[in-house]
Amino acid sequence: MPSKPPIISLKSVHKYFGTYHALRNINLDVEEGQKIVVCGPSGSGKSTMIRCVNGLEQHDEGDITVNGHMMTTDEKTGNLIRQEVGMVFQSFNLFPHMKVIENLMMAQRMVRKKTKAEARDTGMKLLERVGISAQADKFPGQLSGGQQQRVAIARALCMNPKVMLFDEPTSALDPEMISEVLEVMTELAREGMTMICVTHEMGFARSVADRIVFMDEGEIVEAGEPETFFANPEHNRTRKFLDQIISH
């Protein structure tokens, strides 16, 4: 039986910011339904890598294929890919002048061409799923950080994406709000969503990830299943990083 091609595939990807070599020869395949956690010190290229996956950054060399589409500089191709890839940001990025439910409805109406009623319906269902349907008619600024991030997750899910990218989704949150966001993410993982999460939440990584990718200085140093990754990291750099984040 021929196996399905990976839903995300990065092949020899390089990215430069001016003369700075931000991504060095990145190779990564993600199968449908897999959960990948990406970790590494700041400036290691984690965010840049996942931002290349949906074309928020353009890579300079190599091939990125998402859901059968090869990423090009062409805006149409980029849009086609972005419509199937949800993204959650560190700073939530909810549209402040729109109510919560309007935040969820906008892309459904503009991109999926749904009617107002359909979009509202889907929006309310997803707000319920992340546990904040009571806040639908508030503005984002009236919500706590954890609530805002859950709205952001719901907003991405409204588009019925095939893949979800998380770019340090809990890093801007107060400690007591981290778990409510991680719970939503764990639930999503359990339902079979394909996910790439940049995060330092190692507990989440251990329980959810199929594979942990460790990056440093723009390259993937090592990647492996959580057990072996945490118990027997191959590389010194990985060991050092794990020591630093776990000892505190």
């Binding site: 928020l56 849009n79 993204m87 940001f89 991109v111 991405a156």
Partner: peptide, 17 residues
């Protein structure tokens, strides 16, 4: 805020939208 523009883009909106 550039982040808002990125969020809208990430949702699949065209540049015009």
């Amino acid at each position: 805020d550039k982040g808002l523009v990125e969020a809208a883009k990430a949702l699949g909106l065209t540049r015009f939208q």
